[in-house]
Structures are given as C-alpha cells and as structure tokens.
Amino acid sequence: MATSTFQLSRDSFGALVLTTDDGLLHHGVSPVRAFPIQSPSQGISLVLHDGKEVAWIDDLADLPPPIRALLQEELDGREFMPEISHIASVSSYATPCTWFVKTDRGDTEFVLKDEGDIRRIGDASLLVADNHGIHFLVRNMFTIDKHSRKILDRFL
C-alpha cells in the first residue's frame, strides 16, 4: 500500500487507527522498523496484532507532518534503546561487571553478564545487552572517544 493512501489517528484508548483510501479501518496498528539501527526512518511496516502488514512506509520524511509525528511518538514509546556516547568506567574487565556510561538519555550503570552480550551490528555499530535485557547502542565504535574505545577493545 502506498504511503500516501492512508490516514492515521488515535482512538479513545490511544491505539493507532489506520484508515485506507477506500475507507477500511484497521484498529490497533503498530509500526515496526525494518532496519532499526542502520536506517531507522526508512522501511516502516504498519502491522496488526496478528502480525499482518496493512501498510508500508518507504521513508518517514515523505509523510505529512501530523502522520509522521504520530508514528514517531508511537515508535519512541515502543522502542527503548539508549545510545552510549561515553563509557566512563567498568568495574572489572572480567564478566560479570558493571558499566558506568553516558547515554543520550542520561548517565546510567548496568551489569554486563558476558562478553557474548556485546554484538556487532554492521561494520561499526554494537548492541550491548544488560542483565535485564535492555539493549544499549554504540552507533559507531570507531568515532567514540578514545577512552571508551579502549574499554570496548578489551571486551571485543
């Protein structure tokens, strides 16, 4: 379905409602990113609770501002992936250990259970999972500051 052939709104419960150009209503649609790390604004699928796709969005930037704002708000509420901008310190270079980091959502600390909880995504990105299953993103391990890079190198 072309991105210009639908309307998006919220119902009285706050769920997204997609209205197709032929007037068909789909209640409770959810946006799902095809490439959440490499291309977060491109390739968005709108799916029903059973996983059936009812619309595809090539690029969020192509949508009218009100629809784009609704989708961005929904995505922000569903996805929680703080981006690490600096690794201040680690309690130990043996796991489990506590990491003290600065993120785009503030300073925090988390426990890394195992080196296997650091996964490479593409050439430069890393996903770091804490002991509670929260994923932290290192967008580019080659451009992060020298101190943080030195710590990362010890675990990779």
Rank of each mutant, 00 (worst) to 15 (best):
R105C: 13
H132Q: 09
S92R: 07
R105A: 14
R120A: 11
K102S: 13
A129L: 12
L112W: 00
M141N: 04
F100K: 13
D117Q: 12
T108P: 01
V111W: 00
V111E: 00
F110M: 10
T108G: 00
Y93P: 01
F100C: 10
N140F: 09
W99D: 02
P96K: 15
F110L: 09
V138R: 06
D117Y: 04
D123Y: 07
G133S: 09
T95P: 05
A124E: 07
G122P: 07
G106N: 09
G133E: 10
V101Y: 02
F142R: 10
A94E: 08
T95H: 12
N131Y: 02
T108Y: 00
T95Y: 13
D107H: 12
D104Q: 10
M141L: 13
V138K: 04
D104C: 12
C97D: 06
G116Q: 05
D117F: 05
D130T: 07
T98L: 07
F100Q: 15
N140I: 12
M141I: 12
R119M: 08
V111T: 10
L112G: 00
F110Y: 05
I121Y: 03
K113T: 04
W99G: 01
H135M: 11
R120I: 02
N140V: 14
I118D: 00
R139Q: 11
T95F: 11
A124C: 05
H132T: 12
M141V: 15
V101W: 00
C97H: 09
G133D: 10
H132C: 03
D117N: 08
T103N: 05
K113M: 10
E109Y: 04
K102Q: 14
H132S: 10
T103K: 03
E109C: 09
N140R: 14
T98R: 14
D114R: 13
S92L: 04
T95C: 15
V128Q: 01
G106T: 06
K102E: 11
R105G: 03
G122I: 08
P96F: 13
R119E: 08
R105S: 14
L137K: 10
D114I: 07
D114A: 12
G122F: 08
S125R: 10
S125W: 11
R105D: 05
L137A: 07
H132P: 00
F136A: 06
D130Q: 08
G106P: 06
K113Y: 02
